[in-house]
Design a protein around this nucleic acid. Sequence first.
DNA 1: GTGGATTTCTACAACGATTGACATGCGCTG
DNA 2: CAGCGCATGTCAATCGTTGTAGAAATCCAC
Lengths: 333, 333
Amino acid sequence: MATRLSDVAARAGVSVKTVSNVINDYPHITSQTRAKVEAAIADLDYKPNVSARSLRKGRSDFIALAIPEMASPYFAELGAAISRAAKKRGITVLIDQTEGEQAAEKLVLDGMRGQLIDGIIFSPITTAPARIGAAGTAKPLVLLGERPTGGNFDHVAIDSVQASFDATTHLISIGRRRIAAIGVGGGAGTGAVRRKGYRKALKAAGLPHDPSLELAGTGYHRPDGAASMRELLALPEPPDAVFCFNDLLALGALRTLADAGLSVPDDVAVVGFDDIEDGRYHSPSLTTISPDKEWLAENAVELLLERIAGNSDSTRRDLTVPYTLEIRESTTG
Amino acid sequence: MATRLSDVAARAGVSVKTVSNVINDYPHITSQTRAKVEAAIADLDYKPNVSARSLRKGRSDFIALAIPEMASPYFAELGAAISRAAKKRGITVLIDQTEGEQAAEKLVLDGMRGQLIDGIIFSPITTAPARIGAAGTAKPLVLLGERPTGGNFDHVAIDSVQASFDATTHLISIGRRRIAAIGVGGGAGTGAVRRKGYRKALKAAGLPHDPSLELAGTGYHRPDGAASMRELLALPEPPDAVFCFNDLLALGALRTLADAGLSVPDDVAVVGFDDIEDGRYHSPSLTTISPDKEWLAENAVELLLERIAGNSDSTRRDLTVPYTLEIRESTTG
DNA sequence: GTGGATTTCTACAACGATTGACATGCGCTG
DNA sequence: CAGCGCATGTCAATCGTTGTAGAAATCCAC
């Protein structure tokens, strides 16, 4: 049923290995033979069997991308960018919804899909996966997001502290004085690092730090942002600006503000983080930190492929994703 | 480096065949032996090499999902649901961004990833892929969306005509008389089928059909919806309601309306289609047709797996996805 | 036109899991 | 104790591709 190498060989009147050589660009081949083989390949519409190839070569040209959930816009956009970047290099991406930390970790350690994949790009959302570093993963791994303390693998992330500093400073620059933060967290995760930049900016501007303005919430989705915003509005002295640690939180917060009949940015200014497409089309459009996702994807894939090829020195690398602050209606009207 | 069957056999003190028998649930095995083998498997954290297995068995337990773009919320949500449904059944989903019809079609016909995947779920956005049906695809295929005329494969879709009829009728029921449609298209694709339901509803209510209120636009994203809405507002007699053929178009339209200082739904009511999460949190929240995505995912996967197993009769099946009309602020304030 | 280098191609084994045919050993039953 | 059924082992072949080693063909210089 499926045409295989030997069929092509028979048709072209050469040996199986010669066909394989043509396919793999082996140097010493007459242009004549090559033409003959290529004609046979075209005639039979031959496609190499990837299972057999991967079994023999020990390489599949498949990589995995582990993300918490693909329905979340940031991860969807990231996944799309990484798929594109990989496809350009002849690599296929297998997307894994980890749906929580433990599961994610399990995946990484769990035999990497029966040795099918050559490596993994891992993007946790909340806490840094400390234990992942500990367990020696057999396959190359590139980590996206905040860096855990240990671990020996490459790492690509935005400078969350600086970006958060910039976002907060922007709010200060438009005259806000009571600036809340939604999405703070503990440990060394995203929520903690972004809080660091937020506090730093307040301090740099000589503004007081009010703990009641820092909300943790339970997650990083719209409902969490909406709930946190309701809490803030219930304060005796509500904020005049909010820095949300991602865009979904910000969109949830905007929804609460709209429900409360408050004007954005006049009553409360809002800044997000991630620059997902929804924010650009929301009314008001969302001011946000915009990491260069294409850059991130290209470099994460490149880093991983270098590791897989093995022709990179063993020193671990850290890349910092460029970003811009996109100023839109939610802070400037 | 990688543990293989023979390692497990050695550790358990049995033959390779016995281990294989345990893994593949061969009938005659002592619970003792089974326990011993399973312990060895656990100890060594053995995972069968999927390349080898798939090469030998001719089945990989991988299926592909071909969608136009995963960054589009509807497809992201669909992909997430299908991944979940497949994972429940021990199947892994490979997501393919087709980014346009021809490429998509090519993928499907092009050797199905070198026989790695067992089948494909194909979800085109625009026109029905007529040629796909023509070419005899070797592997099982389930088509999502509007059904093309020919082709011999299973098919899962919402009743677009009825749903569009319902959406339009809802607008009529709240007193609208000049109802526009955004996203119409020709042929037998989504844009044509939904227009059919739209026109049917107008006719049923005795409303005139005004061709200038039917906008095709160039795509199905927010900017397309925004542009179409601008066109509608420029009409000598603008509409008092708009039915957008998907939620992204609707969100774009809402943005234009906000920019124009018009009130939704007082000046213009808006209905979408797909029920993506963004619509639920937008202000105003978006009234929309909500297909049951979980149902869709479960059934598409189930259908495909039955085909792959080969224990389904050869008659082709058509399933209709249940849906509801979610009435929200964009039509009721 | 012969020796030796070089190019071009082929035969064979291997990757790891599975399967089938067949042999073997054990505990029972009659 | 013959004979049966069950549980496992042995051996070999197979899936399709590629690396190794070497055979065959070609080329050049003398």
